[in-house]
Design a protein around this nucleic acid. Structure first.
Lengths: 239, 239
DNA sequence: ATGGCTGTCTGCGAAAACGCAGATAAATGA
DNA sequence: TCATTTATCTGCGTTTTCGCAGACAGCCAT
């Protein structure tokens, strides 16, 4: 279903410094370059779907991605936002199927490494495997921290958290350089674990307090510090 | 503060088959045996505290442990229950401090491997590092699955989930072989992300439906299948 | 411009969950 | 054993959150 296009960027000439593949030895970087599958996914398309079999892991070369997981009623929940240098599909690695799906938020270029290639690379490159393990460790910390926060926060606090998380993940700028959020009310709700109605209510309230302003239907975080302060009792990082 | 006692069980004579250390080469198992720190922690004592520095990882040889994380109001949340062969402190590995604390639920024996020993063992034993990475991957899946479920479930469903989780983690048996739960209302609440009052209410309701019965203040899951059925629309595993 | 489509906002009633406080039961120590 | 402490249960009023429905605004194609 995805419209996929083969392109050719060798890893050693890739400008993405944070890519995990860079942890491998030069010879292996060459091998991975040759064997990897570089794919372009158009905006709105799935990179992989929930419950699809796990063939390998994706490394984001460029683009913005949302990782989603749908619940019983078919409603979506956004588990994570990912950008350049991040990896995708690692949740499923070692399992049968992907517990989540990944959707391109704009045009995205990813490098796909299949299970066999990955296994060989892990075996031959301690630094690579170790870096990926550390990444998992960090992801686990963040995941549990987040579920701890969400269990305590009110809807308003969760929405503010979501806004800050989005701005930190995607880092867009609106007029006057303030952080800009282009996701829909529903998508914000999917992050904040609530519904679009509540997001609207919170936004109205934040508008009245002049902590956010609108640019069309996009949101500008006018008073970033004020927003951060209102959830500072929980945390200082939003990722 | 902990009352700790040195004992001496060599890894190769340890009956715990699922210990990750078994993934290492025979020579390394010997080395770890010699360098590890085997400790007994008495019931109720901390194995490590939240926010304490990370010196290494603990491997549970025998015993039951609850992993807790306290929130703003000082209330505790139980993140995980762990038993024989499980590891502790891995959440903090790679970070500065432990994001969680670990408390012995009964007398516990653990083997402590410090950071330097671990790093050497990882570097020299691909299978060991790979197994730990897979463990992280699985933990991440479970953590996110759980927070997804908890966002959707009602209080009653979360309490039932907690009961099933406890019985699966600690596997105790009461009279007639039915699963037995010895945790307090407050501890159950700490798992189900609610408070002790609500747990009481749910238990009363479950008693009326004859799905659970009491043995003193302990809980017997009289109708295990019925309980499972009532949350089957979410999941079939509770770990 | 016009009509239709989609996304957003907001008022209202209903449901869920909470917190408190008093009653009751169980466990502990002298 | 009895008294004291701790844990559990339950009723009630309050707060939070939700879901629905109608109003409104912006965007697109004709």
């Amino acid at each position: 279903m995805n419209r996929r296009k083969r392109v050719t960027t060798q890893c050693f000439e890739c400008k993405n410094a944070s890519c995990f593949v860079k942890q491998c030895s030069p010879e292996y970087i060459g091998l991975i370059s040759a064997k990897k599958n570089q794919i372009k996914i158009n905006k709105g398309q799935y990179i992989f779907r929930e419950d699809s079999p796990v063939f390998g892991i994706y490394f984001i070369q460029q683009g913005r991605v949302k990782v989603v997981s749908s619940n019983i009623d078919g409603k979506e929940q956004i588990v994570r936002l990912a950008g350049d240098g991040h990896i995708l599909g690692h949740r499923g690695y070692g399992g049968e199927t992907h517990p989540v799906g990944a959707v391109a938020q704009n045009d995205v270029w990813v490098c796909f490494l299949d299970n066999a290639l990955l296994y060989d690379a892990f075996k031959a490159n301690f630094e690579f495997l170790y870096a990926i393990m550390m990444f998992y460790s960090k992801e686990l910390r963040k995941s549990e921290q987040r579920s701890k926060y969400f269990a305590q926060m009110t809807v308003e606090e969760r929405v503010i958290f979501a806004l800050l998380y989005i701005s930190e993940s995607f880092g867009l700028e609106g007029m006057e350089g303030s952080p800009l959020i282009t996701l829909s009310r529903q998508e914000i709700a999917d992050i904040a674990a609530t519904n679009a109605d509540q997001v609207s209510r919170v936004l109205t309230s934040l508008k009245n307090r002049e902590q956010v302003s609108m640019e069309g239907k996009n949101i500008i975080l006018a008073d970033l510090e004020g927003l951060k302060k209102s959830i500072a009792r929980y945390t200082t990082s939003y990722s």
